[in-house]
Design a binder for these strands. Structure first.
Length: 263
DNA sequence: ATGGTGGAAAGTCCA
């Protein structure tokens, strides 16, 4: 089975490209972030025609997450337990959706950006990660044999080598010790970040800004990851960061990260 | 030109 995560930066703009990629790579399950649409606006038809079932969560033009699966999609869960709200009045944003696909509990996650260190969005980001870690720990605690994948755009660069020029990120979000601690907490909860384990090489980015020729210069960031439970980790044979998908007109600013599972 | 790109309730917010 092949499962992947991809921040597509608008599902409507990218539907053709997403479908072509799914069919070309033979991907069975895709966790999608930044669909940027409401549920009624999602382009279900082309995916369903290609044999994929769709679970989508979107409230407006911001955020939006989905899971596409051709191996079944059961027990869909919108938001994780105790997922924090943001703003006044507080809104639980569409940043997390879970479903069981081919026996794997897949979560598509779009972690809040944080914006600036002194911004309310940054505190929200840390709280969001802390509550997610608690939920993740509980899932594994309830079933130590569970196959869970926490996949998505984490908006955290865990290592200095995950950003193209660390000197430019001093005092910025994505690299702060608090964010890195919040990210690392998933390891203490019993999960393994399998993409790092199988693709340890530096300068293997998953995101490049649209501006200033960042992609041709390979000035990117590695911020898309997949935390896996022990039972799922044992099945992951290969991880691929599909850098080529950043090329050409109409690309997302993120590329797919792919997990190949045994069996 | 100093947000230089791209996507989204269409005017500004978000990344």
């Amino acid at each position: 089975m092949r499962i992947a995560t991809w921040n597509v930066n608008s599902a409507r703009t990218r539907a053709d490209r997403m479908l072509a990629w799914l069919e070309r790579t033979g991907t069975d399950v895709l966790a999608v972030q930044e669909t940027k649409c409401r549920d009624d606006q999602f382009p279900y038809l082309p995916f369903e025609a290609a044999g994929y079932e769709v679970a989508h969560l979107g409230l407006n033009q911001w955020n939006g997450v989905a899971i596409l699966s051709r191996v079944g999609i059961e027990d869909v869960e919108r938001h994780f337990p105790a997922q924090p709200a943001y703003g006044d009045p507080g809104v639980v944003e569409p940043r997390a959706i879970g479903a069981t696909c081919g026996g794997v509990r897949v979560w598509s996650l779009y972690v809040p950006n944080g914006r600036e260190i002194d911004h309310a969005h940054y505190a929200y980001k840390l709280e969001w990660l802390a509550r997610l870690e608690e939920a993740a720990a509980a899932w594994l605690g309830q079933d130590p044999a569970a196959q869970v994948a926490l996949m998505g755009d984490w908006n955290v660069a865990p290592l200095d080598t995950d950003v193209w020029d660390p000197s430019r990120f001093v005092g910025r979000t994505h690299v702060s010790p608090a964010e890195r601690d919040a990210f690392a907490a998933f390891a203490a909860a019993g999960y393994t970040e399998i993409t790092r384990e199988l693709v340890p090489e530096v300068n293997r980015y998953t995101y490049w800004d649209y501006q200033q020729l960042r992609f041709p210069r390979n000035e990117g960031m590695r911020i898309d990851f997949a935390w896996t439970t022990p039972a799922l980790r044992a099945r992951v044979d290969r991880v691929t960061i599909d850098r080529d998908e950043r090329k050409g007109k109409g690309a997302s600013d993120h590329v797919p990260v792919v997990l190949d599972l045994a069996g």
